[in-house]
Each structure stands twice: as C-alpha cells, then as structure tokens.
C-alpha cells in the first residue's frame, strides 16, 4: 500500500494570506522613586523635558530640604532620557558615582540627596 507523499500537507487548504499587523504594547520610560520623601512613586516620563526638585514649580516635586529647588533636568533624546545636574548643592549620582550628566539606561539608579530613583526603559 502506498502512502500519500505528505498527508498533513495535503490537508492544508491553500488560500490568499492577508498580511496581519500586530500592535505591540507601548510603555513609556519610567522613574521609580524607591527611597526618600514621596517614595514610593512611579513617574511616567512624557513630553520632552522635566525638572525634579524641591520647588513647587518642578514637574516632579520632592519635599526634601536637601534637594535644590531645581535639582536635575531630564531631557528626552533619540535614545531615551538624559539627566543633567542643574548646579545643585548636593549633586547627582548615577549608580553611586557623582556625575554632571548621563544618558540613562535600564536599571540605572539616580540619587538626588536622600531621594533614590530607578530608571526603566520603555518599549
């Protein structure tokens, strides 16, 4: 007795295949405050720029006397966000190293005096 060449394939119904479009979920970049006044909180990074500081005018206000009124600025770039020290009194620390500015990467810690944040890249 002879078997068909490919019984499974012969059962496949040929048809015109429409191209399907997937819509992957999009999540914005985030800063999660894990220590300090106001923690815990999750900050969605939207727009092009924002200030973190003690001032009521700061987009992200941290009620700590050791933060400068305008402590750091975050700017959106082609490849995520950049954090820059605004000549603060107590500095900006990236992964425990004092810096002036850096492009943030997933999992980075950002410390502003007694406030500690973790950066998460969006997708």
């Amino acid at each position: 007795m002879s078997l068909p060449d490919d019984p499974l394939d012969s059962a496949t119904r040929a048809q015109a295949v429409p191209v399907l479009t997937a819509r992957p979920s999009v999540r914005s970049h985030q800063l999660q405050q894990v220590e300090g006044p106001g923690a815990p909180q999750l900050i969605e990074l939207r727009g092009t720029s924002l200030i973190i500081g003690r001032s009521p005018e700061a987009e992200v206000r941290i009620p700590s006397s050791s933060l400068s009124r305008q402590h750091v600025r975050l700017d959106r770039g082609d490849d995520g966000w950049t954090v820059t020290d605004l000549d603060s009194s107590n500095g900006l620390y990236l992964n425990e190293i004092r810096i002036y500015s850096a492009e943030l990467r997933d999992g980075d810690t950002v410390q502003l005096s007694d406030a500690l944040f973790v950066y998460f890249e969006g997708r």
Binding site: D85, N95, I97, R98, I99, Y100, S101, A102, E103
Partner: peptide, 13 residues
C-alpha cells in the same frame, strides 16, 4: 579612590 567604568554619554564635572 573612586573607581567606575567609563560610559558612553556620561559627563563628569
């Protein structure tokens, strides 16, 4: 001595 890895896009003052 403070030791860290030089990282693209990082600025020190």
């Amino acid at each position: 001595v403070i030791v860290f890895a030089a990282r693209e896009g990082m600025t020190l003052k």
